[in-house]
Design a protein around this nucleic acid. Sequence first.
RNA 1: GCCCCGGUAGCUCAGCUGGACAGAGCAACGGAUUCCUAAUCCGUAGGUCGGAGGUUCAAGUCCUCUCCGGGGCACCA
Length: 577
Amino acid sequence: MKKETQLIEQQLSAWCAETFATCFPDADLSDINLRVNASRNEQFGDYQCDAAMKLAKALKSNPRAIGQQFVDTAVLPAIVEKIEIAGPGFVNITLKNDGLASQLTNMIADDKLGLPNIGKNQTVIIDYSSPNVAKPMHIGHIRSTVIGNSIDRLYRALGYNVIADNHLGDWGTQFGLIILGYREFADHDALKRAPVEELERIYVESYNRSKDDATWRDRAKAELVKLQSGDAENRKLWESFIALTLGEFDKIYKRLDVTFDLYRGESFYNDDLAGVIERLEEEKLSEESDGALICNLENDGLNVAIVRKSDGGFNYTTTDIATVASRTAEFQPSEIIYVTDDRQQLHFKQFFHICKKLGIETKLTHIYFGLMRLPEATFSTREGNVIRLDALLDEAEARALEVVKTSSPDMDEAQQREVARAVGIGAIKYTDLSQNPTSLVTFTWKKALAMDGNSAPYLQYAYARIASVRDKYAAKFPDISPDEFPIVLTEEQERRLALKLTRFPAAVESAARLHRPSVMADYLYDLSQAYSSFYQNVPFLKADQGPRESRIRLCALTASVLKNGLALLGIETPERI
RNA sequence: GCCCCGGUAGCUCAGCUGGACAGAGCAACGGAUUCCUAAUCCGUAGGUCGGAGGUUCAAGUCCUCUCCGGGGCACCA
């Protein structure tokens, strides 16, 4: 039986709370945060507790004295070397070297590297990517796809049962225009060559005609009505548009290593929409206004949401409510997570609110991110200022290939291409994942394709160096098995690396909890820096037996953490680079 | 008009539930390669955290006001 892993931070926090309770048995400490946190600055120990300052007021005492009392009464846990009081009343905690070493040994023995199984028996649905049919994906789509996919991976790693659902925009008024346009001026050769581009051209042209041609508008509407009422021919056309588009999308998803468990577009919920309206009316949550049916949420500061248009059609609020109802009934998720850009915030607040009023208790979370902007000067001449996603990926791979060719000229070309693919795609993903999603993002090729510094290639490079060390060790000492030697931390860089390694589970946990892959990226970069410094300054293949094996084990564990950690960002780790 | 998100070093960005002197990368400058992949490492320089008040023992982080940029506010999703 696998013992439940507990994060060091939690362990120390619990200990800290207990100790304070023993120190001050009469005080009510329930409102005060007694947590222990990783020290930001290593001169203040490995972990620190700032509770003494927080308690000062409640206990009517000064923080130094409280800290001192804590230090005097505390019974140190086995893993702790010493505690000290410092500054205004911080308790700084330093871990034992052999305590760290045994943590590492446990991680090595655990194929999950110490990750807690906090998602056991919980289902989470993640709704991300969700592009529209008949429109090519451009750089605006990469954030939802890559961020959503990373959240997906983080949750899975923590034991959640994740359902990744691609909620395609496959239904709506645009299909009337597309069907009509298709009938009138489709270029069938172009449709074979580049189906989505041609579909988009058809849509745009048809849309433009509808703007000042009432007849065209009416004809498009007639096509839409036919489609919606199940006309066999239009239905078939519509299905073919979806198939063509998905065929193109799948190429991109494959390149990005993104897979979905479900592809349920808006059309999937079409039959449920009337029922949603009925429920809203029954619950008296809706009212007529200017011929439309609305939910008035002004009292909640959320304006007004239209649930049925004056022409009788439904819109996305209705669809989204139907989707939640369907998902909760079918999967009983503990949480549904949506990943979209921040323009949709109001919409999500509105329909989350309506769902709650309808008695749906499921936790609904909207992860939003800032739209990608272009620095005007660079791209103003580009047509429509749009960079297609596949073009971006091509460029990334090409750029990476140049670097690979100059850095690894001896590698055969097929392998160079393979490395360039992993590195190029990794660079693109990392750029998106390493920033806080809510930040505004300015797209620059330089940043997106960065190959050094805080970038995926830096992390991949660190990994490849370890792989190389491992192979050289195996060749040089074929008869020695490093795992028979204990991990001993003597050098400064060694200890720093060890400490970082033990924080992997905490990093994964908080990245998932905060829905922020950037936390993971930050951690991995930090770890790689610690490793690179170790690598550069501490010899291992040339060290004596004992330290050598200990260091090899550290290398191996670093490799595992990097590989698994980067996998949580959807980034590959080639063995050679 | 109301609401949301940004404004941190020349540039691009971190900074978790307020915690000890604000951190990276790029660019600049100076070092390191008989040695485990230099896509690396070590170092120097660079910031009144948009501005003004306030709360607090402690504010980049919370509150109020304000300036700048982006976005959203009824039949597109």
